[in-house]
Every structure is written in C-alpha cells, then in structure tokens.
Amino acid sequence: MRVFPVYAPKLIVKHARIFLTGVIWVKDLGRLEFEKGRFLLPRKSLPKVKQAILELNELIEAQN
C-alpha cells in the first residue's frame, strides 16, 4: 500500500497504471482500491471521495 500525503491526481494515476491492482491511501480521502488500472467506487463513500475517483478514472481514460 502506497501512502500519498496530498491529493496529486497525476501521480496517483501513474501509480495505478504501473501496478494495475492494489490499494493506496490518500490523506483526506482515505483508502482507494484499483483493479486493472481503474479505481473502484466503494458502495458507500463521501461525495468528495466519489468525485476524486471519477476524476482519476477520467484521467486514466484520457491517457489511453
């Protein structure tokens, strides 16, 4: 598990694309899981977490 002390979308996306499957922890967002290079949306999450995951997945799609 990698810990990101700040929310840096480009760096987080780079990590997810390299490792494809895993878990990261982002300060103020908490634990985020990714599989096959995409972030998974938890069943229950705060609106800011949901927005961050959608933003990260959009960045991943834009890079493909």
Rank of each mutant, 00 (worst) to 15 (best):
M1E: 15
M1I: 15
R2G: 09
R2P: 15
V3C: 15
V3G: 08
V3H: 15
F4T: 01
F4E: 01
P5E: 15
V6G: 04
V6Y: 13
Y7N: 01
P9E: 03
K10T: 13
K10E: 13
L11R: 08
L11M: 07
L11C: 13
I12L: 04
I12Y: 01
V13D: 00
V13S: 10
V13T: 08
K14S: 11
K14V: 11
K14Y: 08
H15Q: 02
H15R: 02
H15F: 08
A16C: 09
A16S: 05
R17F: 10
R17T: 11
I18D: 10
I18F: 14
F19G: 04
T21W: 06
T21K: 14
T21M: 07
G22P: 02
V23G: 02
V23L: 13
V26K: 00
V26G: 01
V26W: 05
K27H: 15
K27S: 14
K27F: 13
K27M: 14
D28W: 14
D28V: 05
L29P: 01
L29N: 00
L29Y: 05
L29T: 04
G30P: 01
G30V: 02
R31W: 01
R31M: 05
R31F: 09
E33V: 13
E33A: 14
E33F: 14
E35M: 11
E35W: 10
K36I: 04
G37L: 06
G37Q: 06
G37I: 05
R38A: 09
R38E: 10
F39W: 01
L40P: 08
L40H: 07
L41T: 11
L41I: 11
L41D: 07
P42A: 09
P42H: 13
R43D: 07
R43Y: 05
K44Q: 06
K44R: 13
S45R: 14
S45A: 10
L46C: 14
L46I: 13
L46A: 12
V49E: 04
V49P: 03
V49Q: 07
K50I: 05
Q51W: 11
Q51S: 09
Q51D: 08
A52W: 02
I53A: 07
L54K: 12
L54G: 09
L54T: 11
E55S: 06
E55N: 05
E55Q: 09
L56A: 00
L56C: 03
L56P: 03
N57P: 01
N57Y: 02
E58A: 10
E58H: 09
E58I: 07
L59E: 10
L59T: 05
L59H: 06
E61N: 15
Q63M: 10
Q63R: 07
Q63L: 10
Q63D: 14
N64K: 10
N64S: 12
